[in-house]
Write a protein that binds this DNA or RNA. Structure first.
Lengths: 215, 215
DNA sequence: CAAACCTGTGAACCATGATTCATTATTCCT
DNA sequence: AGGAATAATGAATCATGGTTCACAGGTTTG
């Protein structure tokens, strides 16, 4: 690369910045490669060597950017999961009746999961080694917290009957995810029509759990 | 052992029976040892060598009775889990209003889990290796099916609003188990009073999901 | 009682796949 | 350009823990 030797690097800024950028880029590339591998082959197929190959670097290079495999996967989990948490959170902070928002949050979460099936299965239910499982629990907790905020909002607005927000949030999240486990299983035929019904039913059940009255 | 050489072993019955009994006994001893280890140290501490030691046999002997570690653990899982499934099933086949039975089934399951905490955590949420996780999914499915029978019964009796039984059962099971995950975590202080409230709340939420009308 | 046969033993073996590290290539600065 | 510093490489190493197996001890059969 041609550098037009500027008078003087005021500080060590330009080179550092470039270096940092390059490193960040490698970091991101690796992260994406890992995510893609998981989305395609699940945790089972997510070996360091494969990920490195996918990212176009050598195995050892992975350790230049991540302290360990667990570390890398924790970041992958965060990358993918945070988006989902944010989606639920958007509903928690939204306008309109809380029951409707709860219904939509559940439905949206499920629909999104049923699109990237393989990835969702990996995140929610796929058997995986303990270290990853550990990180998964953290993500689940975050998701529950997002639902908790939604429930709390509904309580403040008097739109839910009086329940313990944290418990209710756990129940909603649990109900939702357990409903997904079956359909997400890799071997099940992708019957999308059934999926639509499933989503609708589950969302309704979750709302019913908290509803002040029957419709 | 002194054998009073009876005239003639009509068949090969006597020796075989004794042998079979001895084998069965060893099998059972191993199974119990494995269960106890898991109940004390979780899957993490459940290594073949330790289990063998606990059972008072050599490592290799384990393989006289179980084809593999996964096999052994599958049986442990079945041993412990089947009882829980049966408990739920008893409520499914019981008398009285289905909503009450559902409430009691959930409460009973949770209460039982909160007693043997460590074991329940292992069965429900503890990070563990894929092979065990796989078997765990099977158990979850069985539990869901038990709840499904209960829901179906309630539907027949017209005591639940019209819902898809399988989906509702998943939701109930999921809600229940997710509620347990937090409190079961090994580090959490065992605040039993909170546990009582948690059980009551969760059971109520599960019933509300299906209830025809508000109380 | 001896031969055939199980069953138990536990140290050695092996497979897996993450992690390391001596070496080589690249990039940065003067 | 020259040399230090930094990054990339990937084959070798290592750790873990399940699994095997050649052998020993005891039991059954004839």
């Amino acid at each position: 690369m041609v550098r037009v030797s500027t008078t003087a690097p005021t500080t060590t800024a330009p080179p550092n910045r470039a270096r940092v950028l390059r490193l960040q880029s490698a970091h991101t590339t690796l992260l994406h490669a890992a995510r893609d591998i998981v989305a395609e082959h699940g945790w089972q197929g997510a070996q360091i060597a494969l990920i490195a190959a996918r990212a176009g670097v050598a195995t050892g290079s992975v350790y230049r950017h991540f302290a360990s495999k667990a570390d890398l996967f924790a970041e992958v989990l965060a990358l993918v999961s945070q988006r989902e948490v944010d989606v639920v959170d958007a509903f928690a902070r939204g306008e309109g009746p809380a029951p409707d928002r709860l219904r939509d949050a559940v439905a949206t979460f499920m629909t999104r999961a049923l699109r990237r099936r393989r990835l969702a299965y990996a995140l929610i239910a796929e058997p995986c080694e303990p270290a990853i499982d550990q990180a998964r629990l953290v993500y689940r907790a975050a998701l529950v917290r997002a639902f908790e905020r939604l429930v709390e909002d509904g309580l403040v607005r008097g739109e839910f009957r009086k329940v313990h927000a944290a418990t209710a949030a756990s129940c909603v999240a649990g109900a939702m995810m357990e409903s997904l486990v079956g359909p997400l299983a890799p071997d099940v035929a992708p019957e999308t029509r059934t999926a639509t019904t499933l989503v609708r039913n589950t969302a309704a059940l979750c709302v019913a759990m908290l509803a002040r009255e029957m419709a």
